[in-house]
Design a protein around this nucleic acid. Sequence first.
DNA 1: AAGATCGCCTGCAGGC
DNA 2: TGCCTGCAGGCGATCT
Length: 291
Amino acid sequence: MPELPEVETVRVGLQRWAVGRTIRSVDLHGPRTVRRHAGGPGDFAARVTGRRIESAARRGKYLWLPLDSGEAVVAHLGMSGQFLAVAPDVADQPHLRARFRFADGPPELRFVDQRTFGGLLVDELTSGGGSPVPVSVAHIALDPIDPAFDRNGFAAALRRRHTGIKRALLDQTLISGVGNIYADEALWRARLHYDRATDSLRRADVERLLDAVDEVLRAAIRAGGTSFDALYVAVNGESGWFDRSLEVYGREGEPCSRCGAAIRREPFMNRSSFRCPRCQRAPAGRRPSAR
DNA sequence: AAGATCGCCTGCAGGC
DNA sequence: TGCCTGCAGGCGATCT
């Protein structure tokens, strides 16, 4: 599932395969692909055709490609979105949603998305927090590996919140880029229970958690992300291999590498949380976690 | 108004 | 064997 490390791996691939190239044409398939683009498919095509891609940028789980028009193609991979650089004679993927052809010839760039939670739009850039960011991305917080990420601000926001720490980690307006997998991994590293109240955390807890988030995201980027199946691959088609380094996610019943206790899976927010029952004790008197 | 939940989508695993 | 249910889960919309 694409979280920050997977999206960053895709961004590097787009830098290699798309930046500097001029879009000759684009084909869009399916009603959901550009559902967030106000002008619809025709307007999308008109805004990108003939434009040169200047760079490849990312904040949290959003990607964008600034164009020489001053606008940018914004992409979100959702649950299963992929960008693939392929030769034109490669058979269309079953869930091909968009095809970009370039003035310099092959390879073409395809956006493929099985579950259609992802999508594309063209948007204006605005100056959000110093650096230019698409209007449609400006509502999310900086991600923790951004040099401008504000640890003091994040700690203050947690003190004002009345919710559990994992809910806060998943809230993209507080800290962006963290999803279910890396939230569980970071909480394990920081020895925190997912339902620990944000307003009960001491500053040292927050620092330990942010260090853990930073470390696990950077380690996953070095590994090219986490690939459980063919739904996540890099732009060149390669899988990531961070799944071998996961300590709790998807490891129900296996021994904790620190203490040996069996990892537990528990229902949480209509999905699952994985934790070590010994290293990550349930907070006393906590509110029952909604499921 | 913040916080929690819902609906969107497809493919696959597991149970009977 | 084949149908059914559950699960994966990010995010915008919608509740309370």
